[in-house]
Amino acid sequence: MRSAANSVSEHRDELVELDRAIGDGDHGENMERGFLAVRNQLELTVPESPAAALKSVATSLISSVGGAAGPLFGTAFLRASTAVGDAETLDGPTVAAALRAALDGVTARGKAEREDKTMVDALAPAAEAAEAASTTAGSGPSAVLRAAAEAAETGARTTVSLIAKKGRASYLGDRSAGHLDPGARSVVLLLNAFADVTGAE
Protein backbone atom coordinates (compact mmCIF):
# COMPACT_ATOMS: atom_id res chain seq x y z
CA MET A 1 0.00 0.00 0.00
CA ARG A 2 2.84 2.32 0.82
CA SER A 3 4.28 1.71 -2.60
CA ALA A 4 0.88 2.28 -4.21
CA ALA A 5 0.66 5.58 -2.36
CA ASN A 6 4.14 6.55 -3.54
CA SER A 7 3.33 5.67 -7.11
CA VAL A 8 0.15 7.72 -7.01
CA SER A 9 2.13 10.65 -5.60
CA GLU A 10 4.81 10.33 -8.24
CA HIS A 11 2.23 10.33 -10.99
CA ARG A 12 0.03 12.97 -9.44
CA ASP A 13 0.80 15.58 -12.09
CA GLU A 14 0.27 13.13 -14.91
CA LEU A 15 -3.16 12.23 -13.50
CA VAL A 16 -3.99 15.90 -13.08
CA GLU A 17 -3.10 16.54 -16.72
CA LEU A 18 -5.17 13.59 -17.94
CA ASP A 19 -8.19 14.71 -15.91
CA ARG A 20 -7.73 18.30 -17.06
CA ALA A 21 -8.03 17.19 -20.68
CA ILE A 22 -11.40 15.48 -20.24
CA GLY A 23 -12.57 16.23 -16.70
CA ASP A 24 -11.98 18.88 -14.09
CA GLY A 25 -8.29 18.30 -13.39
CA ASP A 26 -8.63 17.04 -9.85
CA HIS A 27 -8.06 13.30 -10.27
CA GLY A 28 -4.35 13.48 -9.38
CA GLU A 29 -4.98 15.50 -6.25
CA ASN A 30 -7.96 13.33 -5.31
CA MET A 31 -5.92 10.14 -5.57
CA GLU A 32 -2.89 11.59 -3.84
CA ARG A 33 -5.00 12.85 -0.95
CA GLY A 34 -6.78 9.50 -0.77
CA PHE A 35 -3.65 7.40 -0.64
CA LEU A 36 -1.99 9.75 1.80
CA ALA A 37 -4.95 9.11 4.10
CA VAL A 38 -4.60 5.37 3.41
CA ARG A 39 -0.94 5.42 4.40
CA ASN A 40 -1.52 7.46 7.55
CA GLN A 41 -4.31 5.20 8.68
CA LEU A 42 -2.30 2.01 8.06
CA GLU A 43 0.57 3.44 10.11
CA LEU A 44 -1.80 4.41 12.89
CA THR A 45 -3.49 1.02 13.20
CA VAL A 46 -1.68 -1.95 11.71
CA PRO A 47 -4.37 -4.26 10.33
CA GLU A 48 -4.44 -7.86 11.51
CA SER A 49 -5.34 -9.53 8.23
CA PRO A 50 -5.34 -8.82 4.49
CA ALA A 51 -9.12 -8.33 4.65
CA ALA A 52 -8.75 -5.78 7.44
CA ALA A 53 -6.05 -3.95 5.46
CA LEU A 54 -8.24 -3.77 2.35
CA LYS A 55 -11.15 -2.52 4.42
CA SER A 56 -9.01 0.17 6.00
CA VAL A 57 -7.94 1.30 2.52
CA ALA A 58 -11.58 1.45 1.41
CA THR A 59 -12.66 3.52 4.39
CA SER A 60 -9.80 5.98 3.96
CA LEU A 61 -10.52 6.42 0.25
CA ILE A 62 -14.25 6.88 0.74
CA SER A 63 -13.70 9.52 3.38
CA SER A 64 -10.99 11.52 1.71
CA VAL A 65 -11.00 11.37 -2.08
CA GLY A 66 -13.86 13.77 -2.86
CA GLY A 67 -14.29 12.93 -6.55
CA ALA A 68 -15.95 10.01 -8.30
CA ALA A 69 -12.83 7.97 -7.70
CA GLY A 70 -13.51 7.90 -3.93
CA PRO A 71 -16.74 5.91 -3.86
CA LEU A 72 -15.57 3.83 -6.85
CA PHE A 73 -12.14 2.76 -5.59
CA GLY A 74 -13.61 2.66 -2.06
CA THR A 75 -16.27 0.18 -3.14
CA ALA A 76 -13.64 -1.80 -5.08
CA PHE A 77 -11.42 -2.24 -2.01
CA LEU A 78 -14.44 -2.94 0.21
CA ARG A 79 -15.65 -5.75 -2.06
CA ALA A 80 -12.10 -7.09 -2.39
CA SER A 81 -11.89 -7.19 1.39
CA THR A 82 -15.04 -9.30 1.60
CA ALA A 83 -13.82 -11.62 -1.18
CA VAL A 84 -10.55 -12.25 0.64
CA GLY A 85 -12.46 -13.38 3.72
CA ASP A 86 -10.34 -14.77 6.53
CA ALA A 87 -7.39 -15.79 4.35
CA GLU A 88 -4.15 -15.11 6.22
CA THR A 89 -2.02 -14.78 3.11
CA LEU A 90 -3.13 -14.11 -0.44
CA ASP A 91 -2.53 -16.84 -3.00
CA GLY A 92 -3.09 -16.48 -6.76
CA PRO A 93 -6.75 -17.54 -6.88
CA THR A 94 -7.64 -15.30 -3.92
CA VAL A 95 -6.04 -12.31 -5.62
CA ALA A 96 -8.01 -13.10 -8.79
CA ALA A 97 -11.23 -13.41 -6.79
CA ALA A 98 -10.52 -10.08 -5.07
CA LEU A 99 -10.03 -8.35 -8.44
CA ARG A 100 -13.25 -9.82 -9.78
CA ALA A 101 -15.10 -8.62 -6.67
CA ALA A 102 -13.53 -5.18 -7.06
CA LEU A 103 -14.71 -5.00 -10.67
CA ASP A 104 -18.23 -6.07 -9.68
CA GLY A 105 -18.23 -3.37 -7.00
CA VAL A 106 -17.19 -0.64 -9.42
CA THR A 107 -19.81 -1.61 -11.99
CA ALA A 108 -22.51 -1.86 -9.32
CA ARG A 109 -21.64 1.58 -8.00
CA GLY A 110 -20.95 3.45 -11.25
CA LYS A 111 -23.13 1.50 -13.72
CA ALA A 112 -20.40 1.84 -16.34
CA GLU A 113 -19.91 -0.81 -19.00
CA ARG A 114 -16.81 -1.58 -20.97
CA GLU A 115 -15.97 1.03 -23.61
CA ASP A 116 -17.64 3.80 -21.59
CA LYS A 117 -14.10 5.19 -21.18
CA THR A 118 -13.71 4.67 -17.45
CA MET A 119 -11.57 2.72 -15.03
CA VAL A 120 -13.72 -0.30 -15.93
CA ASP A 121 -11.84 -0.51 -19.25
CA ALA A 122 -8.67 -1.24 -17.26
CA LEU A 123 -10.16 -3.21 -14.38
CA ALA A 124 -12.30 -5.62 -16.42
CA PRO A 125 -9.46 -7.03 -18.57
CA ALA A 126 -7.28 -7.07 -15.42
CA ALA A 127 -9.78 -9.25 -13.57
CA GLU A 128 -10.06 -11.60 -16.55
CA ALA A 129 -6.30 -11.90 -16.98
CA ALA A 130 -5.91 -12.53 -13.26
CA GLU A 131 -8.44 -15.35 -13.41
CA ALA A 132 -6.71 -16.91 -16.41
CA ALA A 133 -3.29 -16.64 -14.77
CA SER A 134 -4.49 -18.05 -11.46
CA THR A 135 -5.67 -21.28 -13.05
CA THR A 136 -2.19 -21.97 -14.42
CA ALA A 137 -0.51 -24.34 -12.00
CA GLY A 138 2.06 -22.73 -9.81
CA SER A 139 1.25 -19.09 -10.43
CA GLY A 140 1.48 -17.24 -7.20
CA PRO A 141 0.05 -13.85 -6.35
CA SER A 142 2.85 -11.90 -8.01
CA ALA A 143 2.38 -13.64 -11.38
CA VAL A 144 -1.37 -13.06 -11.14
CA LEU A 145 -0.91 -9.39 -10.30
CA ARG A 146 1.64 -8.95 -13.07
CA ALA A 147 -0.78 -10.44 -15.60
CA ALA A 148 -3.54 -8.18 -14.29
CA ALA A 149 -1.34 -5.08 -14.49
CA GLU A 150 -0.34 -5.83 -18.07
CA ALA A 151 -3.94 -6.41 -19.14
CA ALA A 152 -4.97 -3.21 -17.38
CA GLU A 153 -2.28 -1.31 -19.26
CA THR A 154 -3.54 -2.60 -22.62
CA GLY A 155 -7.12 -1.91 -21.57
CA ALA A 156 -6.33 1.61 -20.41
CA ARG A 157 -4.70 2.36 -23.77
CA THR A 158 -7.94 1.51 -25.56
CA THR A 159 -9.66 4.35 -23.68
CA VAL A 160 -7.75 6.91 -25.76
CA SER A 161 -9.97 6.52 -28.80
CA LEU A 162 -13.21 6.01 -26.88
CA ILE A 163 -15.97 8.55 -26.29
CA ALA A 164 -16.86 8.87 -22.60
CA LYS A 165 -20.33 7.66 -21.61
CA LYS A 166 -19.94 7.86 -17.83
CA GLY A 167 -18.47 10.33 -15.39
CA ARG A 168 -17.68 13.97 -15.86
CA ALA A 169 -15.96 13.40 -19.21
CA SER A 170 -19.27 12.22 -20.66
CA TYR A 171 -20.48 15.83 -20.73
CA LEU A 172 -17.81 16.48 -23.38
CA GLY A 173 -19.30 13.97 -25.82
CA ASP A 174 -17.12 13.50 -28.92
CA ARG A 175 -14.49 15.87 -27.56
CA SER A 176 -13.52 13.31 -24.93
CA ALA A 177 -11.93 11.12 -27.63
CA GLY A 178 -8.16 11.31 -28.08
CA HIS A 179 -7.28 11.31 -24.37
CA LEU A 180 -6.39 8.55 -21.94
CA ASP A 181 -8.92 8.12 -19.11
CA PRO A 182 -7.33 9.19 -15.80
CA GLY A 183 -9.23 6.62 -13.72
CA ALA A 184 -8.04 3.79 -15.99
CA ARG A 185 -4.50 5.11 -15.66
CA SER A 186 -4.82 4.98 -11.87
CA VAL A 187 -5.88 1.34 -12.01
CA VAL A 188 -2.69 0.58 -13.94
CA LEU A 189 -0.53 2.48 -11.44
CA LEU A 190 -2.06 0.64 -8.49
CA LEU A 191 -1.79 -2.81 -10.05
CA ASN A 192 1.80 -2.18 -11.11
CA ALA A 193 2.70 -1.11 -7.60
CA PHE A 194 1.01 -4.19 -6.10
CA ALA A 195 2.77 -6.47 -8.59
CA ASP A 196 6.14 -4.85 -7.89
CA VAL A 197 5.97 -5.29 -4.13
CA THR A 198 4.61 -8.84 -4.23
CA GLY A 199 7.31 -9.72 -6.77
CA ALA A 200 10.02 -8.35 -4.50
CA GLU A 201 8.80 -10.19 -1.41
Binding site: G67, P71, L72, R109, K166, G167, R168
Partner: peptide, 8 residues
Protein backbone atom coordinates in the same frame (compact mmCIF):
# COMPACT_ATOMS: atom_id res chain seq x y z
CA UNK B 1 -23.21 11.50 -11.00
CA UNK B 2 -20.44 11.10 -8.45
CA UNK B 3 -22.52 12.85 -5.78
CA UNK B 4 -25.04 10.09 -6.35
CA UNK B 5 -22.39 7.47 -5.59
CA UNK B 6 -21.42 9.26 -2.37
CA UNK B 7 -25.10 9.51 -1.38
CA UNK B 8 -25.65 5.81 -2.07
Amino acid sequence: GSARMTAE
